[in-house]
Design a protein around this nucleic acid. Sequence first.
DNA 1: GAAAGTATTTTTGTATCCACGTATCATAAG
DNA 2: CTTATGATACGTGGATACAAAAATACTTTC
Lengths: 213, 213
Amino acid sequence: MSATAEEEAYRHVQQALRLGRYKPGERLIPEEIAAEIGMSRMPVREAFRRLASDGLVVLRPNRGCVVAGLTVDELYEIFEIRSVLEGLAVRLAMPRIDEEELEELERLLDRMERAGQSGSSDWVVRHQEFHGRICALSRRPKLIHQVAALHVVIEPYMRIWFDDVDKPLSAREEHAAVIAALRSGEPHHAEQVMQEHILGTAPMLAEFVTPSR
Amino acid sequence: MSATAEEEAYRHVQQALRLGRYKPGERLIPEEIAAEIGMSRMPVREAFRRLASDGLVVLRPNRGCVVAGLTVDELYEIFEIRSVLEGLAVRLAMPRIDEEELEELERLLDRMERAGQSGSSDWVVRHQEFHGRICALSRRPKLIHQVAALHVVIEPYMRIWFDDVDKPLSAREEHAAVIAALRSGEPHHAEQVMQEHILGTAPMLAEFVTPSR
DNA sequence: GAAAGTATTTTTGTATCCACGTATCATAAG
DNA sequence: CTTATGATACGTGGATACAAAAATACTTTC
């Protein structure tokens, strides 16, 4: 299991960012991170470029690498983009979906709810799995990848949301509605439902975006 | 005018890729490119990471950097994604569009056509300007950026298309229809027209994707 | 002519070094 | 007390030389 050092650095920092271990605005010093994982600066700096492309980090010349934070506007923008991309994904997934797949989605929904009830913030991961599964059915690699990348960016905020609010109570119904829409067999209807689902959750999250920066 | 070395390397290679100076599958050797621009390997390798994130280049472990080529499927996928993203952009742009802006778009359309008639492959750049302008009106930074990135990826194929076919004859009408839709004042109608415009051009381009790779 | 082993080349990563930009913070001047 | 000023420490961006590991090419042997 020998991934390149850059891979390792990328995963390491990404994971930390997903879990919210670094706060927005915090500086990431290549030397420190390199020492942490036991490698030299170069692969870490390369990883920074990728993380910057993902929007997880901001690289300003002569000023190094800073953890990116989202403004409310940026958060809404991401949800707008998600709405059309994941809407496209369900529309494309529709023709090749079968009963077995629908039941799998229901099982994922159950797992999500169990995680939610136990208060485990695994809920966020399960939620990503649910959305990711639907995207995967579209069989569009780039689409899948882009949507996943957006989920990573919003993950820290989802965690804050989940920790603060008891648990997303409406989540079960919302996602069940998506499955029902998939059962309808009408691509454009399912697309519509997905779009509304995603745009509907944005305002709830927005409350938890610290107006800092 | 002091961009970092990495910036310079990124721009340099990106420009070459846009113009199709490197062929898909061709290997990019950091040392050579570094020598070309007069710098060391390090910034070039960092630039490679960004180019890989953009999908312009593929980085395979222990096998270096290879110019990415698109399969027909990938090209269609990019156009599907463009259709929803640029569709979203026009929908969002609609409320803040005025007569002055519409006339500007018509001027861009004229410039595009003039470039087309003179056979100059500036046409591709003008075409990007037209689409870019509409996206810009949405005032959504991330959306604008993502769409621009997709245009860069398909640019080499647009050039081949433009050089082979006399010139996109239907282009004038197609884009005029988009402006007309913007004049209609109905966001969802404009979105629909933009989606159809983009999806309609995909098959024409697809013919010029070499079945290599 | 195929397989195995050896050499070569590339890629990848390490370790160091240096010039320059930025930030900090104490001190001096208004 | 606030604002300049300047010294200093720190980190970035980049260069370079070197080492290790992987992939590729080349023998040699059977």
